[in-house]
Design a protein around this nucleic acid. Sequence first.
DNA 1: CCCTGATTCGC
DNA 2: GCGAATCAGG
Length: 198
Amino acid sequence: MSWTDERVDVLKKMWGEGQSASQIAKELGGVTRNAVIGKVHRLGLSNRAGSGGGKSAAPKADAKPKAPAKPKAAPKKAAAPREDEIQEPKTESASPAPQPKVPHARRQIIPAGQPLPPQPSANEISPEVLAKVNEVEKTAKKITLMELTEKTCKWPVGDPATEQFWFCGLAVQQGKPYCEAHVSVAFQPMSSRRDRRR
DNA sequence: CCCTGATTCGC
DNA sequence: GCGAATCAGG
C-alpha cells in the first residue's frame, strides 16, 4: 500500500480527531501503526496540540543518547508475514463498512427527572469526576451488549428498560473493564465512600 | 501485559 | 519516502 492522497487525507483527519496511530492503521488497512506514525512525522503533524495551553511541546533539547551500537546478533525476523491481526471474529466478510458512524439523532440521555437510580455509583463522587463522566457519556461510542469486547468500556448508560441504553464502549483502561473516566467512578477509594450515611 | 507515540536507520 | 525495530513512557 502506498500513501495516496486519499489515504493521507484519512490519516490527517483521524489524527486530527485524536485517533491513535493503531486505530488509523486499522482503518486504512495495509499499514501498521508504525507506518502511520512514521508518516505523521514526515508530514510534520506530529504534535496534535498546537494549543498554546500549558502543554508544551517536547523539550527535545539534544537527542543522541541512543545506543548507536546495536549488536543485533541475528534477530532478523526476515520478512515477517504480518497479515495476522487476530482480532475478534467480527462479521468479517468483504463489506467495506467498517465503522458505522451512528448517525442517530441525539437521544436525550435522561428521559425525565425520574429517580433513575440504576447508575452504579453516581451518588457521592467528586462533582468534577461526575462531570467528566457526563462528558464521556456524550462522546461514548454507545455500543450494544454484543459489541462489548475485552477492550471496550462496559459501563452501562441509561435505563436498560428503555431505548436509551448503551454501553460506553470507549477504550478500556488496560486491565480494567471500564474506560478511564468510568474507572474513576467505579473504583472509588474506600476513604472516599467510607462514611456513607445510612 | 496491554497500550501509546517517538526515533532511528536500512531499504 | 517508507516503515520495522526499537525506545520510552502510561
